[in-house]
């Protein structure tokens, strides 16, 4: 199993506050890994480092075989096209319809003809099971679950090698949570031949245990546990036991 992302002694400080404390770990290619932790544990900062939106104070990040310290601003922008991200509240462009949101990265980064873009967007929206009546609605006219589906379709448009999910089940009812979890697993399975790596940031311990291969638990910028789901369930660490019992 090869590593998609490798952190080596990564520390991030903002003034005197240490947000990430000497982290060393690797994310396995083609697997679903969830980063769990309480608010303020450093999960979002870690995600920003993976995307190259923040530079570590110390240490080195190797992502998809590229040392991110070697990339300049323009290089990082190019590099980020290997990533797709589903945001907590989907972050759809509110002046574009669901359809246009999914077409947006294709229009920006490919030279595909309109007919080909239409075909691709149709496929993506069907894959995330968005009902066709909603395809030409604005994000404000869609439910939270529908927006997440559109966000997922948009993130998949450029066929990324790594999918990042920021709190994918936050603010959803139990049924929508189930649907989004199934979509994450289905997306990973559908793209298994391309070894799509999925990285989820979440508080939702139940959903995470259901869909992940690996779980990392962060507390105050340090890794408390990083193991398989089975090992995580059996962990004797008091913080993790407390988290599991929530």
């Amino acid at each position: 199993m090869t590593d998609a992302i490798i952190f080596k002694n990564v520390t991030k400080r903002y003034g005197t506050a240490t947000v990430l404390n000497n982290l060393s770990f690797s994310i396995k290619e083609g697997k679903i890994t969830t980063i769990l932790g309480f608010s303020g544990a450093g999960k979002s900062t870690l995600m920003k480092h993976i995307l190259g939106l923040t530079i570590p104070t110390e240490g080195q990040i190797t992502s998809l075989g590229v040392n991110m310290n070697d990339l300049d601003e323009l290089g990082l922008r190019e590099f980020r096209r290997n990533f797709g991200m589903v945001f907590q509240y989907a972050a759809l462009f509110d002046n574009l319809t669901a359809y246009e949101n999914v077409a947006f990265p294709l229009r920006e980064f490919t030279k595909l003809k309109d007919a080909k873009i239409r075909e691709k967007v149709d496929d993506l929206l069907e894959a995330v099971e968005l009902v066709p009546e909603s395809w030409h609605r604005l994000p404000s006219e869609l439910s939270g679950g529908m927006r997440k589906r559109v966000g997922l379709a948009r993130a998949l448009a450029l066929e990324p090698r790594v999918m990042l999910y920021d709190e994918p089940t936050s603010g959803l009812d139990p049924i929508s949570t189930q649907v989004v979890c199934d979509l994450i697993v289905d997306t990973a399975k559908r793209n298994a031949d391309k070894k799509l790596t999925s990285l989820i940031i979440s508080h939702d311990v139940r959903a995470s245990l259901r869909i992940s291969d690996f779980i990392m638990f962060l507390e105050r910028g340090s890794i408390v546990e990083y193991c398989t789901v089975e090992e995580f369930r059996e962990s004797n660490n008091p913080t993790i036991r407390r988290f599991l019992e929530l």
Partner: peptide
Amino acid sequence: SMKVTEQLDALEVMGI
């Protein structure tokens, strides 16, 4: 309003 709803972050992540 794009900033507070993470739409600017979405642009950044897409490499725009």
